[in-house]
Nucleic acid binder design. Structure first.
Lengths: 225, 225
DNA sequence: AAATCTCTTTTTGTATCCAATTTTTATTTT
DNA sequence: AAAATAAAAATTGGATACAAAAAGAGATTT
């Protein structure tokens, strides 16, 4: 979020040094949407955002287009941008897609997976069990990514990443993480064990279960509210 | 592509005003990349594109960002945009992802699929067998989309669409479509038959085979050149 | 009350700057 | 001649200002 503050002068006004403006706005806005500080459906006015991020409209528009591609922002022609709405159907769909994409990634990665890489995933799992709940989403993504990395499938991995971020948006809305955490951790350990044995069938079914139960927990938690 | 030529005055200079500029540039550029008229790796300079599409740099940048999200353009900071490179690995990955995504879509759609919708897909297949090879990519996508539509999964369907477009880019590079066509048509008929019987297992395995053989044909055709 | 017509707000697009980076070219140095 | 360096040319990233179109809100008329 912080930026190099090498300031210079332009048209009599102060401005930040070049670089990373769009990236800043994207990550800032994305974080606010994922964390729920920006509620679904609320309008995102270009001028307002430009002022909030101390930038001009141009990088703001670039950022909005990027976030539209990621599914966090809805852009209607001539009507502007709004925080993408949420729905139970959407969660369901995201988790169905995660099952398909991540089981594919695991199947490809498993034969290439070294013990060292499994150890690294186990270390991430250790951090998950110690870290505060607020970091769960990010660490969970890191755990899964560590296991899929040997697949060497850039498109697939970035697709999985996008789905994970979309899921995090819903995850952070429900405080159901607390009683779900222990179950998720146990499932991660099961998955690691199956990976160590290089048991593809077992590993994939562990993963499918893991994602499906997470999805179901989220859906029921959303339907309750 | 044609546009209203409302002319107006600004800063003493004449300028043409148009509507839907960004969409025009995106679809125009995308078509040129898919059709291969713009070769992989060739630079896309903003100023040059702006002149070619008779627009200013802002909509050009918007378009480039969108196309980057779709994977057709590669954007390096401070170095500009280039037509995304191609590789055999990329084709392989795209078709792996298509298998996963489309078999999921078919599994979800099949129980909701009506005979009328199957007939509509069969009608599209009829058109495929009559139409010129240049329209194969677009019609093939329409055929598959017709079968998946009842799944009512917007995210999944647009993901499948993107993969299809990415695949079309490689498809149009190889003229291997000619001896592949008869095989593809037979597979489409098999798939339709399995759908009519509502035989999920058979339909999905037909589809998986269909996509995999298409991928393999493309890979071997690319490796030959 | 319903329809029409302003008036305002907001988005979309154009044009023109300027600064920071590459990339290229020319010039020196070894 | 080859390598290193400095100057110059392209190009991108970003800012500002302005024009036009659409959507929304009021006010007016029917």
């Amino acid at each position: 979020m912080s930026n190099v503050e090498k300031v210079t002068e332009m048209h009599g006004r102060v401005l930040r040094r070049r670089g990373g403006t769009v990236a800043d706005i994207v990550s800032g806005l994305r974080h606010e949407i994922i964390s729920g500080r920006l509620s679904p459906g609320s309008p995102l006015r270009q001028e307002h955002l430009a002022e909030r991020f101390k930038a001009s409209r141009m990088p703001v528009r670039d950022a909005l287009r990027l976030l539209e591609g990621e599914g966090f922002v809805q852009l209607d022609p001539n009507r502007g941008a709004r925080v993408a709405p949420i729905s139970v159907d959407d969660v369901q769909e995201i988790f169905e897609m995660r099952v398909a994409a991540e089981s594919l990634a695991l199947r490809i990665a498993l034969p290439e997976l070294s013990n060292m890489q499994i150890d690294r995933a186990a270390a991430v799992q250790d951090r998950i069990e110690r870290a505060p709940a607020s970091e769960y989403g990010m660490l969970n993504a890191a755990f899964h990514k560590t296991l899929y990395a040997p697949a060497a499938r850039p498109r697939l991995l970035s697709h999985i990443d996008m789905l994970g971020q979309a899921a995090n948006r819903y995850l952070s809305m429900t405080i159901a993480t607390l009683d779900y955490a222990s179950r998720s951790n146990a499932e991660h350990h099961d998955l690691l064990l199956a990976c160590r044995k290089r048991d593809e069938g077992r590993a994939v079914s562990c993963l499918v279960m893991h994602i499906e139960t997470a999805g179901k927990a989220l859906v029921s938690s959303l339907e309750a509210s």
